[in-house]
Amino acid sequence: MRRSSDATLETPVTQMIDIVFLLIIFFVVTASVDNDLVDNTVSLAQAKNAKAESVAKKMAVTINMKMEKDANGKLIIVNGRPKISYNIALQPKTLQGIRQTLLAVKEETGDFVPVLIRVDRNVEYRYIDELLQNALARIGFTKVSIVAVANE
């Protein structure tokens, strides 16, 4: 009698491992490698009506743009203007650096690649315009996309 009760208490290890492996495979597959290269500190503007991009643009260059803050969360002002920082895949860049990167990509691919701009929602347009005119339009990149948080 004792023996039979022991037998019913055994954990079905084989089935459990099956499920656990399936879960791991799921997480490995869904974890995108690019995720590490997205600057999540940029608080994007909200687009109420837009739908999320279902397919990620391959070969697109994503420029992150934000206003630098100090340890207390206050904006850093230099010479009367907020300190703006740019990065591509978390690598800090200057406007000239962005131009060089885009020209290098253009030379490699032989075409104007799509450019995505992830800009902080509170940045004034004059600073965005500096990026658009001095780093993009100047070297022929006239089709760009502004990234915003989609509705769904």
């Binding site: 656990v20 879960l23 791991i24 837009a50 658009l132 006239t142 915003a148």
Partner: peptide
């Protein structure tokens, strides 16, 4: 296997849906 599972659950982040608004520059 459990350690791996816990690692992936902890590192998983909710992806924010992003829209791309295309514009033309002069």
């Amino acid at each position: 296997v459990f350690l791996l599972l816990i690692y992936f659950i902890v590192t998983m982040e909710d992806e924010i849906p992003e829209a791309h608004l295309a514009i033309n520059l002069p």
